[in-house]
């Protein structure tokens, strides 16, 4: 039995495909809109809130791909922890909230060119790929047990490398914080 969030609608007797078509463009459109607002907003706090909403939107897109665990983890880690930390930093930083930030600097043309090149490459990649994988096999709703097992067997090396990177970042943060303390005392 399917028991993902979107799949449940199918179990209820609602035509699943119609619901996906009816809601996907709305969700995707809103996600893109929020992502734009993250960059456009003059107020950094608004940007942070829009970033949280963008990440929730991306989590919704994962739901359409049958990747529930990824969706929930996305909300839990990115929205619940990382953006929370961003907002905490924004609130701690004096005077950053009231001032409207400058939207552009002298490097605006260079970045526009590189963005255009990146967009061109993305379009090329999307167009040239045939995307047969999903169409032929059908996306499988992986159980969390299976996910855990493959993390501990097939993908154990990347998994461990990521934890090594995280440890390095943690140690680095502690070192930076500590040297600061020594200067003041």
């Amino acid at each position: 039995m399917q028991s993902g969030l979107i799949q449940q609608l199918g179990n209820l007797g609602l035509p699943q495909q119609d619901i996906i078509i009816a809601t996907f463009y709305l969700v995707a459109g809103l996600t893109v809109f929020f992502a734009l607002r993250v960059v456009i907003s003059k107020n950094i706090f608004h940007s942070a809130i829009f970033l949280a909403m963008t990440l929730i939107g991306i989590a919704c897109v994962y739901l359409y791909l049958n990747a529930e665990f990824l969706a929930v983890a996305q909300v839990l880690i990115y929205v619940g922890a990382i953006v929370t930390l961003f907002i905490f930093v924004i609130m701690l930083t004096a005077n950053i909230q009231d001032r409207a930030i400058r939207q552009t600097n002298e490097q605006v043309f260079i970045s526009a060119v590189s963005a255009a090149v990146f967009l061109f490459i993305l379009i090329k990649v999307i167009k040239n790929n045939h995307w047969q994988l999903a169409a032929n096999k059908g996306t499988q709703n992986l159980g969390i047990a299976q996910l855990g097992r493959s993390l501990m067997t097939t993908y154990v090396l990347p998994f461990e490398i990521i934890s090594l990177i995280l440890i390095a970042v943690l140690v680095g943060a502690i070192v930076i914080a500590k040297s600061d303390k020594n200067d003041t005392t």
Partner: peptide, 19 residues
């Protein structure tokens, strides 16, 4: 709905209430 990820879903959803 008895979701497969029930408890994780609840924790994730309630953690967004902080916003």
């Amino acid at each position: 709905q008895d979701l497969n990820l029930g408890i994780l879903y609840i924790i994730a959803i309630t953690s967004t209430g902080i916003f």
